[in-house]
Simulated scan of single mutants.
Amino acid sequence: MKRSFFIILPIIVLDQLLKIYVKTHFRLGDEFYIFSFFRINFIENPGIAYGFFINKSYGKIILSIIKVILIIIISIFHINNIRKNVTNYIIIPIDFILSGSISNFLDNALYGLLFNSGTVYNKKFHNWIFYSGISTIDFSFKKGYSHFMEGCIVDMFYFPLINFSFPKWIPIVSEFNFQFFQPIFNLSDIFIFIGIILLFFFRNKINQY
Protein backbone atom coordinates (compact mmCIF):
# COMPACT_ATOMS: atom_id res chain seq x y z
CA MET A 1 0.00 0.00 0.00
CA LYS A 2 2.77 2.40 0.97
CA ARG A 3 4.67 1.68 -2.27
CA SER A 4 1.63 2.58 -4.38
CA PHE A 5 1.15 5.77 -2.37
CA PHE A 6 4.67 6.90 -3.26
CA ILE A 7 3.94 6.30 -6.94
CA ILE A 8 0.44 7.78 -7.12
CA LEU A 9 1.00 10.92 -5.02
CA PRO A 10 4.08 12.26 -6.91
CA ILE A 11 2.32 11.77 -10.27
CA ILE A 12 -0.75 13.68 -9.08
CA VAL A 13 1.36 16.49 -7.57
CA LEU A 14 3.57 16.80 -10.66
CA ASP A 15 0.59 16.81 -13.01
CA GLN A 16 -1.27 19.40 -10.95
CA LEU A 17 1.76 21.68 -10.63
CA LEU A 18 2.27 21.55 -14.39
CA LYS A 19 -1.40 22.29 -15.11
CA ILE A 20 -1.54 25.15 -12.62
CA TYR A 21 1.66 26.66 -14.06
CA VAL A 22 0.34 26.49 -17.63
CA LYS A 23 -3.07 27.92 -16.70
CA THR A 24 -1.55 30.81 -14.73
CA HIS A 25 1.19 31.66 -17.26
CA PHE A 26 -0.32 30.90 -20.69
CA ARG A 27 -3.26 32.41 -22.53
CA LEU A 28 -5.74 29.95 -23.94
CA GLY A 29 -4.36 28.83 -27.30
CA ASP A 30 -0.79 29.95 -26.58
CA GLU A 31 1.79 27.74 -28.23
CA PHE A 32 5.43 27.24 -27.28
CA TYR A 33 7.75 25.29 -29.58
CA ILE A 34 10.18 22.86 -27.98
CA PHE A 35 10.84 20.95 -31.22
CA SER A 36 9.03 21.11 -34.57
CA PHE A 37 7.22 17.90 -33.59
CA PHE A 38 6.69 18.76 -29.92
CA ARG A 39 4.89 21.86 -28.65
CA ILE A 40 3.29 23.15 -25.50
CA ASN A 41 -0.17 24.23 -26.67
CA PHE A 42 -2.56 25.27 -23.91
CA ILE A 43 -6.18 24.26 -24.38
CA GLU A 44 -9.02 23.54 -21.98
CA ASN A 45 -10.94 20.36 -22.52
CA PRO A 46 -14.51 20.28 -21.20
CA GLY A 47 -14.76 16.71 -22.44
CA ILE A 48 -13.13 13.36 -21.88
CA ALA A 49 -9.45 13.13 -22.74
CA TYR A 50 -6.93 13.60 -25.54
CA GLY A 51 -8.87 16.61 -26.83
CA PHE A 52 -12.27 14.92 -27.20
CA PHE A 53 -15.18 17.23 -26.29
CA ILE A 54 -18.71 16.77 -25.06
CA ASN A 55 -21.47 19.08 -26.20
CA LYS A 56 -23.45 20.14 -23.13
CA SER A 57 -22.67 21.34 -19.62
CA TYR A 58 -24.77 18.71 -17.86
CA GLY A 59 -22.80 16.09 -19.78
CA LYS A 60 -19.70 17.24 -17.93
CA ILE A 61 -21.38 16.72 -14.57
CA ILE A 62 -22.51 13.24 -15.60
CA LEU A 63 -19.00 12.52 -16.85
CA SER A 64 -17.51 13.67 -13.54
CA ILE A 65 -19.86 11.38 -11.62
CA ILE A 66 -18.89 8.45 -13.87
CA LYS A 67 -15.23 9.26 -13.19
CA VAL A 68 -15.84 9.13 -9.43
CA ILE A 69 -17.53 5.74 -9.73
CA LEU A 70 -14.71 4.37 -11.91
CA ILE A 71 -12.04 5.70 -9.54
CA ILE A 72 -13.80 4.03 -6.58
CA ILE A 73 -14.09 0.72 -8.45
CA ILE A 74 -10.45 0.81 -9.56
CA SER A 75 -9.34 1.77 -6.03
CA ILE A 76 -11.22 -1.12 -4.40
CA PHE A 77 -9.82 -3.55 -6.99
CA HIS A 78 -6.34 -2.11 -6.46
CA ILE A 79 -6.45 -2.33 -2.66
CA ASN A 80 -7.60 -5.96 -2.86
CA ASN A 81 -4.71 -6.76 -5.21
CA ILE A 82 -2.21 -5.09 -2.89
CA ARG A 83 -3.54 -7.06 0.10
CA LYS A 84 -3.22 -10.27 -1.90
CA ASN A 85 0.38 -9.30 -2.71
CA VAL A 86 -0.14 -9.80 -6.44
CA THR A 87 2.58 -9.17 -9.00
CA ASN A 88 3.94 -5.70 -9.78
CA TYR A 89 2.91 -6.37 -13.39
CA ILE A 90 -0.60 -5.53 -12.14
CA ILE A 91 0.12 -3.12 -9.28
CA ILE A 92 2.33 -0.58 -11.07
CA PRO A 93 0.21 -0.17 -14.24
CA ILE A 94 -2.89 0.35 -12.08
CA ASP A 95 -0.93 2.87 -9.98
CA PHE A 96 -0.39 4.82 -13.21
CA ILE A 97 -4.02 4.53 -14.33
CA LEU A 98 -5.38 5.49 -10.91
CA SER A 99 -3.06 8.48 -10.45
CA GLY A 100 -3.92 9.86 -13.89
CA SER A 101 -7.64 9.34 -13.35
CA ILE A 102 -7.60 11.05 -9.94
CA SER A 103 -5.61 14.03 -11.21
CA ASN A 104 -7.87 14.60 -14.22
CA PHE A 105 -10.88 14.34 -11.93
CA LEU A 106 -9.42 17.07 -9.71
CA ASP A 107 -9.51 19.37 -12.75
CA ASN A 108 -13.20 18.65 -13.25
CA ALA A 109 -14.05 18.90 -9.57
CA LEU A 110 -12.06 21.95 -8.45
CA TYR A 111 -10.79 24.08 -11.34
CA GLY A 112 -14.14 25.79 -11.86
CA LEU A 113 -13.95 26.97 -8.24
CA LEU A 114 -10.21 27.61 -8.06
CA PHE A 115 -9.59 29.75 -11.16
CA ASN A 116 -11.23 33.07 -12.01
CA SER A 117 -11.57 32.31 -15.74
CA GLY A 118 -12.11 29.24 -17.85
CA THR A 119 -14.12 27.67 -20.65
CA VAL A 120 -17.85 27.67 -19.87
CA TYR A 121 -20.98 26.40 -21.57
CA ASN A 122 -23.50 28.95 -22.87
CA LYS A 123 -26.96 27.44 -22.42
CA LYS A 124 -28.62 30.10 -24.56
CA PHE A 125 -26.50 29.55 -27.67
CA HIS A 126 -25.60 25.91 -26.90
CA ASN A 127 -21.87 26.29 -27.32
CA TRP A 128 -18.66 26.52 -25.31
CA ILE A 129 -17.32 30.03 -24.68
CA PHE A 130 -13.59 30.47 -24.44
CA TYR A 131 -11.88 33.26 -22.52
CA SER A 132 -9.04 35.72 -23.02
CA GLY A 133 -6.18 36.67 -20.74
CA ILE A 134 -4.36 34.64 -18.10
CA SER A 135 -6.18 32.96 -15.23
CA THR A 136 -5.48 33.66 -11.59
CA ILE A 137 -6.12 31.48 -8.55
CA ASP A 138 -8.71 32.29 -5.91
CA PHE A 139 -8.11 30.08 -2.88
CA SER A 140 -11.32 31.32 -1.29
CA PHE A 141 -13.29 29.37 -3.96
CA LYS A 142 -15.68 32.35 -4.22
CA LYS A 143 -14.71 33.86 -7.59
CA GLY A 144 -14.40 30.77 -9.76
CA TYR A 145 -15.54 30.63 -13.37
CA SER A 146 -17.87 27.67 -12.77
CA HIS A 147 -19.22 25.28 -10.14
CA PHE A 148 -18.07 22.13 -8.39
CA MET A 149 -17.66 19.22 -10.84
CA GLU A 150 -17.91 21.61 -13.81
CA GLY A 151 -14.27 22.57 -14.31
CA CYS A 152 -12.33 21.93 -17.49
CA ILE A 153 -9.29 19.70 -17.87
CA VAL A 154 -6.05 21.50 -18.74
CA ASP A 155 -4.20 19.96 -21.70
CA MET A 156 -0.87 21.11 -23.09
CA PHE A 157 1.21 18.42 -24.86
CA TYR A 158 0.98 18.51 -28.64
CA PHE A 159 2.91 16.14 -30.91
CA PRO A 160 2.26 16.87 -34.62
CA LEU A 161 4.74 14.19 -35.72
CA ILE A 162 3.56 14.26 -39.32
CA ASN A 163 2.22 17.44 -40.91
CA PHE A 164 2.01 17.90 -44.67
CA SER A 165 -0.32 18.97 -47.45
CA PHE A 166 -0.94 16.97 -50.62
CA PRO A 167 0.23 18.77 -53.77
CA LYS A 168 -2.26 20.45 -56.11
CA TRP A 169 -1.70 17.97 -58.94
CA ILE A 170 -3.11 15.01 -56.94
CA PRO A 171 -6.87 14.66 -57.65
CA ILE A 172 -9.47 14.74 -54.87
CA VAL A 173 -6.98 15.25 -52.00
CA SER A 174 -5.15 18.22 -53.54
CA GLU A 175 -4.04 20.67 -50.85
CA PHE A 176 -5.59 18.45 -48.17
CA ASN A 177 -3.59 18.78 -44.95
CA PHE A 178 -2.73 15.56 -43.12
CA GLN A 179 -1.58 15.70 -39.52
CA PHE A 180 -0.61 13.01 -37.05
CA PHE A 181 -0.88 13.16 -34.00
CA GLN A 182 -3.62 15.80 -33.51
CA PRO A 183 -4.99 15.37 -29.95
CA ILE A 184 -3.57 17.59 -27.21
CA PHE A 185 -3.21 15.89 -23.83
CA ASN A 186 -1.65 16.17 -20.39
CA LEU A 187 0.66 14.22 -18.09
CA SER A 188 -2.23 12.30 -16.52
CA ASP A 189 -3.32 11.08 -19.95
CA ILE A 190 0.22 9.86 -20.59
CA PHE A 191 0.31 7.81 -17.39
CA ILE A 192 -3.15 6.37 -18.05
CA PHE A 193 -2.01 5.36 -21.54
CA ILE A 194 1.24 3.85 -20.22
CA GLY A 195 -0.68 1.90 -17.58
CA ILE A 196 -3.07 0.44 -20.16
CA ILE A 197 -0.19 -0.45 -22.51
CA LEU A 198 1.71 -2.16 -19.68
CA LEU A 199 -1.33 -4.23 -18.71
CA PHE A 200 -1.70 -5.28 -22.34
CA PHE A 201 2.02 -5.93 -22.79
CA PHE A 202 2.29 -8.06 -19.64
CA ARG A 203 -1.07 -9.78 -20.06
CA ASN A 204 0.55 -13.23 -20.32
CA LYS A 205 2.33 -12.78 -16.98
CA ILE A 206 -0.86 -11.38 -15.44
CA ASN A 207 -2.84 -14.43 -16.55
CA GLN A 208 -0.57 -16.58 -14.39
CA TYR A 209 -2.04 -15.01 -11.25
Rank of each mutant, 00 (worst) to 15 (best):
R27D: 01
N55V: 00
Y58C: 06
I40F: 06
F52G: 02
I34T: 09
Y33D: 02
F35W: 12
F32I: 09
I48V: 15
Y33P: 04
E44C: 04
I48M: 15
P46F: 11
N45K: 09
G29T: 13
I40R: 03
P46N: 15
I54H: 02
F42T: 05
D30C: 05
I43D: 08
F32R: 12
N45F: 04
I54K: 12
S36V: 07
F35C: 03
F38L: 14
F38H: 03
E44S: 11
S57C: 00
R27W: 02
I34K: 09
F42I: 10
Y50C: 06
F53D: 14
Y58W: 13
D30M: 02
L28K: 06
E44Y: 07
N41S: 09
E44L: 12
F32N: 03
L28G: 07
R27L: 00
S36A: 03
K56D: 08
P46H: 15
F35E: 05
G29R: 13
F35K: 11
I48L: 15
G29W: 06
N45I: 07
S57P: 00
I34V: 15
S57A: 11
R39I: 07
Y58N: 11
F35R: 12
Y33Q: 06
F53M: 11
L28Y: 08
Y58I: 14
D30T: 02
I34W: 04
F26N: 03
E44G: 06
F32K: 08
F53R: 14
I34F: 07
F32S: 02
Y33C: 00
F38C: 10
I34M: 08
F35I: 09
I43A: 11
F53Q: 14
A49C: 10
R39G: 05
G51H: 07
F32M: 13
F38I: 13
G51I: 07
S57F: 01
G29N: 14
D30R: 03
S57R: 14
F52Y: 15
P46M: 13
L28N: 10
Y33K: 12
Y58Q: 12
D30Y: 01
F42L: 03
K56Q: 15
N55Y: 05
I40D: 02
F42K: 05
I43H: 11
